[in-house]
């Protein structure tokens, strides 16, 4: 029998490491993707002197890729500084796992985002974040790098699905080079809305598909 998952993914799925909650954590991140319905929570305890992650735990309401990625990033980040942990990419995590099916990329990205959200939470609570920046095309582009193109397993920026980004007084218009009835259109749209709507100075997001 052949699973679409590597031995290592299956191992982390069956026996996830560092599972659970930390009571009163120093940092907490909860990320959910409406595109697939998965959620992941990451809890951190950080040494305030050295900014080293001393303890990390996660919870998952998700599929195998989500659980396995969350599990491996807890192993990869324990004992690392926040800056080191922040730089662990989704790609490194999946490589560490021996690869993931491309269509499952967005479930696993969620785990990495959960980690980053927990770090951001810590930094915000401890006065380590600078002023809010105004949303520019570049800011939106950066966010869209976290939206997966399930056909390629890479983000929609790198796979050139985004043909235009327009920002006008709190409203963003994003043009996607896919027909609106494409099998992944609604999943991609939901994912984009989720990533962009949360920008502090954005009130409206329009995702436009080609006909």
């Amino acid at each position: 029998m052949k699973f679409p998952y590597s031995e290592k993914v299956l191992d982390h799925f069956k026996n996830p490491r560092n599972v659970g909650k930390i009571e009163n954590p120093d940092g907490k991140g909860l990320e959910g993707s409406p595109a697939c319905g998965d959620m992941v929570a990451v809890y951190l305890n950080v040494n305030p002197e050295t900014l080293v992650i001393e303890d990390i735990k996660f919870e998952s309401y998700g599929c195998a890729s989500n659980i396995a990625t969350a599990s491996i990033i807890t192993e990869m980040t324990k004992g690392k500084t926040l800056d080191e942990a922040k730089n662990i990419s989704w790609k490194q995590a999946t490589e560490e796992l021996g690869g993931l099916p491309t269509v499952k990329a967005h479930c696993s990205v969620l785990a990495v985002e959960g980690l980053r959200a927990a770090i951001r939470d810590y930094e915000e609570k401890h006065g380590l974040v600078s002023e809010k920046e105004t949303t520019t095309e570049e800011v939106v582009r950066r966010r869209l790098k976290h939206v997966m193109n399930p056909m390629a397993g890479l983000d929609i920026i790198r796979t050139e699905l985004v043909t235009k980004i327009e920002i006008n007084e709190g409203s963003v218009r994003i043009l996607i080079d896919l027909p609106s009835d494409h099998q992944f259109a609604s999943a991609i749209k939901e994912d984009i809305l989720e990533k962009v709507e949360s920008l502090w100075d954005i009130e409206e997001v329009n995702v436009v598909f080609t006909e």
Binding site: L10, C36, G37, G62, V103, P150, A187
Partner: peptide, 19 residues
């Protein structure tokens, strides 16, 4: 993995990622 075959309505399971 325990030898049972069932189906789910979860989006994660579907090819289109739709629930």
């Amino acid at each position: 993995m325990r030898g049972f075959a069932v189906n789910t309505g979860s989006a994660c399971f579907s090819r289109s990622l739709e629930a």
